[in-house]
């Protein structure tokens, strides 16, 4: 059943779609001080804890959140939404029923947010919503919980996701009246690399 839904959801990138290009230029490992690395982490944390990112980096209850200045109060996604263990809503209502896969994702302020890949929650291991800076830092620097990536591969993941019109690019350009994640994609990639070159230091 879930497999059938996954097949149906695996749409190809629309022809003519515009994508974001960015550069991964890692500094020499150890060339960044711990202090500068922690400062870079703080900027990374400001991005990943922002509602544009954290609302869908939720835990094992598989329920996306509505939080941020667009909402009168923080709470679970309306309409009783449950993305299920599939994290794409295959067991219930697919995310992509409303969050359509679009070649022009920066849509109107009242439209359901859309990306150029099928809408979904991040994996459970990558929970950010409600987590402290130290907890998120520990997760992102742990290959067992970050998709098996070292610090350079983390930056490459950001670049590659954006190149496919995925959620990383969308977070910085969500369209409508939605508040974007702070900064821009290239600065975020550079900060991840600075933090990595400093040895991925985490706050206490």
């Amino acid at each position: 059943m879930i497999r059938a839904a996954l097949v149906m959801l695996s749409l190809v990138l629309p022809a003519g779609a515009e994508v974001t290009t960015s550069v991964v230029a890692p500094p020499q490992e150890g060339s960044v001080s711990r202090e500068d690395g922690l400062a870079a982490w703080d900027r990374v944390h400001a991005v990943v804890s922002h509602p544009r990112c954290a609302n869908c980096h939720v835990g094992a209850d598989n329920i996306p959140m509505w939080s941020g200045p667009e909402y009168p109060q923080t709470g679970p996604h309306g309409m009783n939404i449950d993305a299920g263990d599939s994290r794409i809503g295959a067991e219930t209502l697919p995310c992509a029923t409303c969050h359509v896969t679009s070649s022009a994702p920066a849509n109107g302020p009242n439209d359901a947010p859309a990306a150029m890949i099928d809408w979904q929650l991040a994996p459970v291991d990558m929970i950010w919503f409600g987590q402290s800076s130290a907890q998120i830092c520990a997760q992102m620097s742990d290959p067992a919980r970050n998709g098996g990536r070292d610090w350079i591969q983390l930056a490459e993941h950001l670049r590659d996701d954006a190149a496919h019109g995925g959620f990383v690019a969308w977070g910085f350009a969500p369209g409508g009246a939605r508040q974007p994640a702070p900064g821009d994609l290239q600065s975020h990639i550079d900060d991840v690399l600075k933090w990595g070159a400093a040895g991925q230091p985490c706050p206490e």
Partner: peptide, 20 residues
């Protein structure tokens, strides 16, 4: 709501060019 290849989709949200 309509179906696109069997999946429920909100037809007010999807642009003509994106119907796959």
């Amino acid at each position: 709501t309509v179906h696109i290849d069997g999946m429920a989709v909100r037809s007010c949200q999807i642009a003509l060019a994106d119907v796959g």
